[in-house]
Amino acid sequence: MSTPRFLDLPPGVTPQKIETPQGTFAALEAIPVSGVVERWPAILVPGLTGSKEDFIAVLMTLAQSGRRVVAIDLRGQYETPGPDDPAAYTCAALGADVDALSQVIGGGDPVHLVGHSFGGLVGREAVIDGRTRFASFTLMGSGPGAIEGRRARAGRKIMEEVPALGLEAVWHSRFEPEVLAQDVPDEIMEFLHKRLLANSPTGLSCMAEQVLSMHDRTDELRQIEVPTLVLYGEHDDGWPPEAQSEMAARLGADCVVVPGAVHSPAVEAPETTAAALVRFWNAAEKHFLDIRSNAV
């Protein structure tokens, strides 16, 4: 489990509630502290046990490129409520939520979509379903199908233990020992505990089942022809780096390997990650504008 570098919000970042036809979603919104919003916005989608706070360290760098940048909690995650209906937590259902959020945030403009880990699988559904026009799509530490290795074992335990034992028991048996081993500050420990307990138990166990059973949709994603970036840590322990590299090749996508990072580049190497995203977003916008100019 990677932890946010800090929990105090930097200048220009504010908590928001975003109203959509799919419901209300908790978010952190970043806008430039100097200059103006002149580029297309971006939406950042967290992983299975994560939240919008996982992007705190990159929000202002991304916004200073002239964008409104919005990190969200998915349905049933942390500060976004969710129902007890398991059908609400399939990747397709959550992808429809991302569609709705992107349409509200974009306000008619294309939106850059970033999905971390499980959030990448959710974002992929939103891209493939064709309901929303995305400026670009980034898979961050997210692979072509089901998660593998140590994180797959952790996902199975979440799927099995949360319905049987409850979130508090799972915190003490699984999450707390891992956090203590990282020697994180007390305030971050308190935040991680609070965040886990705020999740929908149904949502968490159903999302874990989804990340363990997802099939490969790389060929379908390639057919959409949205500019795509595959970005991952060189030591990723979720999807093997070689699997993500192969996926990038199949997609014809840009590929960035973040030195020293594991599964959460936005936490572990925020400046490198933010710089890669800004370069990619700028290039995607230029490509779009060139195509539109040539069409005219």
Rank of each mutant, 00 (worst) to 15 (best):
L9E: 10
P11Q: 09
P15S: 10
Q16M: 09
T20S: 02
P21L: 04
P21W: 02
G23K: 02
G23C: 02
A30L: 05
A30V: 09
V37N: 01
L44C: 00
G47M: 02
L48C: 06
S51E: 03
K52A: 13
D54E: 14
F55M: 08
G66T: 13
G76Y: 02
Q77R: 10
C91V: 10
A93K: 01
A96K: 08
D99T: 15
S102R: 06
G106I: 04
G115W: 02
F118H: 15
G119K: 00
G119H: 01
E125D: 14
A126C: 01
D129H: 09
R131S: 06
R131H: 12
T132N: 04
A146M: 09
A146P: 11
R151M: 12
I158W: 10
A164M: 13
P177L: 09
L180H: 13
A181T: 11
M189L: 15
S200I: 02
M207T: 03
Q210C: 08
Q210I: 00
L212D: 06
H215L: 13
H215R: 15
E225W: 00
T228Q: 07
G233F: 05
H235F: 14
D237Y: 14
G238N: 11
W239D: 14
W239F: 12
P240W: 04
P240Q: 07
Q244C: 06
E246K: 06
L251M: 03
A261R: 06
S264A: 15
P265C: 14
P265T: 11
P270G: 12
T272V: 13
A274K: 03
R279F: 00
E285C: 10
F288H: 11
L289H: 09
L289T: 04
S293E: 12
V296G: 04
